[in-house]
Design a protein around this nucleic acid. Sequence first.
RNA 1: CGGGGUAUAGCGAAGCCCGGUUAUCGCGCCUGCUUUGGGAGCAGGAGAUCGCUGGUUCGAAUCCAGCUACCCCGACCA
Length: 491
Amino acid sequence: MAKNFSTREDNYSQWYNDLVIKADLAEYSAVRGCMVIKPYGFAIWEKMQSVLDGMFKATGHSNAYFPLFIPKSFFSREASHVEGFAKECAVVTHYRLKNSPDGKGIVVDEDARLEEEYIVRPTSETIIWDTYRNWIQSYRDLPILVNQWANVVRWEMRTRLFLRTTEFLWQEGHTAHATREEAIAETEQMLGIYADFAQNWMAMPVLQGVKSPNERFAGAEETYCIEALMQDGKALQAGTSHFLGQNFAKAFDVKFLNRENKLDYVWASSWGVSTRLMGALVMTHSDDHGLVLPPKLAPIQVVIVPIYKKEEELQSINAVVLPMKQALEKEGVRVKYDDRDTFTPGFKFAEHEFRGVPLRLAIGPRDLQNGTIEVARRDTLEKETYQMTDIGIKVRHLLESIQSNLFNKALTFRDDNTRYANSWDEFVKLLDEKGGFICAHWDGTAETEQKIKDETKATIRVIPLDQKPEPGKCIYSGAPSTARVVFARAY
RNA sequence: CGGGGUAUAGCGAAGCCCGGUUAUCGCGCCUGCUUUGGGAGCAGGAGAUCGCUGGUUCGAAUCCAGCUACCCCGACCA
């Protein structure tokens, strides 16, 4: 499997593509820019979904579902929203096909043109706020805390598996509140949930903060984000949470009577993470031997490989493994017993390694004799032979150890690749030679940010929430600045 | 949309310049035997309208024209 597999050093983006395809996460489809997420890849996404969904429910949110199609007119209601998405919308114009007059194939029936064209949702704020108008009359109807799991379409010019596909899967939360403070609190709470998920489940350290006006969501007053650093030194936005102010309430005329019996517009938030997280997961931990998965999200946490020559040997191995597997499963460990007789042990080792299974247990005649089992961990590639007794406890400890090791490794990497620049020359040099996060002073203007982007391709990834006040001068304009922001080249 | 490239078996390639029987190789796939503690070996076998359409020719994967699709680089982006 890992034969003819690129290394990170050699060609990072080739390495990423090879990995996604050869680890069986996804493949290209017949549709340009759209991928097929394969069962193994989808199992990871399902795990992410179920954990996040639990977190949303635990904070009082409910799931609902809104239409895939959005009337074109809805989009023009909120000016900056249209501007942000107009260039990447797929549009439905007809609702019928007919046999081609020349008898060859099938054509669009021009008589079946839609009165009003539909946009395939690139995001659902407009249809949802049009709906909320009917749901909200009084402060007693608030807050509305709704999430939907859905697919969206954004017609990107260039696509990459998981990181940027024309159609992708995500969740989008849309909440409505009686006060500004409450909406902001919701926005920040969800950012916290994303950070928690990224760090404690994906083992991926993230910076939390807000976007500069240039990078803000179309229609938001403030965009919060979690930002991660990939192994090639490029930043990846892993999740966003928007404080929408009253922009959509005003655009869709959503008002409520407050406690003082006065009409007011509703305050809003929206927040989302997508299948892009899969790309983030791959690029955070994987190595030149293939995928590396944090145990908490791995579809298979432990694989057991029997080693035998004769059928009788397999029988005696089964007698030990099957009860052990059951015991592990009882403790909540996801175990696969790979007893396929059509592949050699060596092949299975390589395959599970490539697919990122955190722990591999191998057991053969020698182990049976000695009461031992060979344990190999994917993150360090270390192999060790343990006594069979109490293997359940050891496995659980090892899984925990792998989970925290992956996080610590990624954190060390990020720390090693976070640097300070105090002059323009230094900034450009660091960017070109090292990449990574660069903390620097910025004068706070969109013009300066744009110029920096034009000249270096670096953008302000995040203005950290825990930003420390520090007087300084903007690296580009020299104008005074009160604190550093984080720059990087990004996906 | 601009610039560059590619299209031959499930995948990756050779053949094309210089037209000539049955289109070649590796991986993968199928069958059998031997194997099995890091990607097994041997033997046999299946699998291709050479991207599409038309032209030149006795004869086209190969030459010519048109079309289509995909990839890479740039402008847009979670």
